[in-house]
Design a protein around this nucleic acid. Structure first.
Length: 411
RNA sequence: GGAGGGAUGGGAGAGCGGCUAAAUCCAUCAGACUGUAAAUCUGACGCCCUCAGGGCUACGCAGGUUCGAAUCCUGCUCCCUCCA
């Protein structure tokens, strides 16, 4: 590893300005980068939710940039905090994950994680390394360092308190545990979304109280999900997963409201500031082209360039030209399949609503009927209006935009 | 320990004896349009059937009152707030 030199101004700007919400205190962060030794970068991870999406990638890219300067990432596997649940989420009671589940989830997580972050400069540690040994006395000592008043200032708590909505005692513990993690690993910088600000600051304060150099707090903007409004999150169903197929990843990006494209470029790519301004100002077809390029770039990062190009071509073909995709999944029919009435030499007579359920196009016959009534079902491009139909083998059945299958004869 | 409030469809949230498969909003799905799986507009949105009609389930759980209950009563379970 080359000796750590201070970053040049350009790199420093990229790290501290681009896709950053707040660095506290900023001057000190710059100073620490000049110290010439690897900083310990801290990032937490909730092992009950091992699926990474683009919202996480914003932070991971930042970590990567710093790793490339020689700094070291310490990933905290939050096997204890996961049981509490972060207050910023909906307050659902969590069940305790078994050690095996945690481990399996952690592995899944790492597989995705290292698509962005450098594994050679990453160390994963489990909270149970220190909390496993914690005694009640330790807990009391820890809690005694803060007041309820401080915690009630946290936005989320303040709001709920004002609205007379519940705040669980354990929720108070969450920031404390997270803060103690920083002490345990002697973190130099902790990263999180802007919603994490409070927790990160508690860590900073606790370190100071315990005689350590307080960590820098580094927050990043929250990436909106595919609805363009709410934060990207698995529970909200508006996420683009790192492991989505190229087709889905591209499609989901195309389904983003136009208004957030610029932000996506800003938080997820290295596009120059000039380019960002262009994107913000683009109108008409150019806007769409920017969106397609974004899709390609992101698909390429998590898959390959070839797949990215293919995803774009496929999208244009299927959704713009309204043609059948290059590869249509097949569905084999036989008399065993509900909805198939009789098989003839070259065609089959079918009960369409029932067949569509068998094919997975709809969850119930009622739903299928509605689809047919709403003119959403086509066979080889021709609108299907009757429930009883004769369909030639090899026909392409399409329901809406997304569902498409070729019928073949199977055993 | 005391007082009070609540549990309704994927979510939020109306309804408070029949006109309620249950307003409205969000989400979802479809159609039109288009420059996209953008935006906008329109429509659908429990399940089943021999389907312009019919049937069966459904408003925390279990009973009850009633010709009829998400709506009233009783008992349970769970949740929340406030006061101490």
């Amino acid at each position: 590893m080359p000796p750590l030199g201070p970053p040049d101004q350009e790199t420093l700007d990229l790290i501290t300005k681009r896709g950053v919400a707040q660095i506290i205190p900023e001057a000190e962060f710059a100073a620490r980068l000049q110290e010439g030794k690897p900083l310990r970068l801290k990032m937490g991870f909730d092992p009950s939710r091992p699926d990474l999406h683009l919202g996480h990638v914003v932070g991971l890219r930042k970590l990567r940039q710093l790793q490339d300067l020689g700094h070291e990432l310490i990933l905290i596997v939050g096997d204890w905090t996961a049981q509490i649940g972060d207050p910023s989420g909906q307050s659902d009671t969590r069940t305790m994950l078994g050690a095996d589940d945690v481990k399996a989830n952690a592995e899944t997580y790492m597989r995705q994680f290292f698509k962005v972050v450098d594994p050679d400069k990453t160390r994963a540690v489990y909270q149970s390394e220190w909390f496993g040994k914690f005694t009640l006395a330790d807990v009391i000592r820890l809690t005694s360092r803060f007041t309820i008043n401080q915690f009630l200032h946290r936005d989320d708590f303040a709001q709920r308190y004002r609205d007379h909505r519940p705040i669980a005692v354990t929720e108070m513990l969450y920031p404390l545990l997270q803060a103690y993690d920083s002490v345990a690993i002697e973190a130099d910088v902790e990263f999180g979304g802007t919603d994490q600000l409070f927790n990160l600051l508690v860590g900073r304060e606790l370190q100071e109280k315990m005689g350590q150099r307080p960590q820098i707090v580094f927050t990043m903007p929250i990436l909106p999900g595919t609805d363009g409004v709410r934060r990207m999150g698995k529970s909200l169903g508006n996420y683009i997963a790192i492991e989505d197929t190229p087709r889905d990843m591209f499609g989901k990006i195309m389904s983003l409201p136009d208004g957030v494209i610029r932000l996506y470029y800003e938080l997820l790519t290295d596009a120059s500031d000039e380019r960002l301004d262009e994107i913000g100002a683009a109108e008409g077809p150019r806007r769409m082209d920017d969106k397609k390029r974004l899709g390609q770039e992101i698909v390429a990062r998590f898959h390959t360039f070839a797949e990215a190009d293919a995803a774009r071509a496929e999208f244009e073909r299927v959704f713009q030209e309204r043609e059948a995709p290059a590869e249509v999944p097949e569905f084999a029919i036989s008399t065993e399949i509900p909805g198939v009435l009789t098989l003839h030499e070259e065609y089959a007579t079918v009960d369409m609503p029932r067949l569509l359920v068998s094919m997975g196009a709809a969850i119930s016959r009622s739903q299928s009927r509605r689809d047919i009534m709403m003119r959403a079902v086509r066979v080889n491009g021709a609108l299907l209006t009757e429930e009883k139909a004769s369909i030639a083998y090899g026909s392409i059945v399409r329901v809406g935009r997304m569902f498409i299958r070729r019928l073949i004869v199977g055993e």
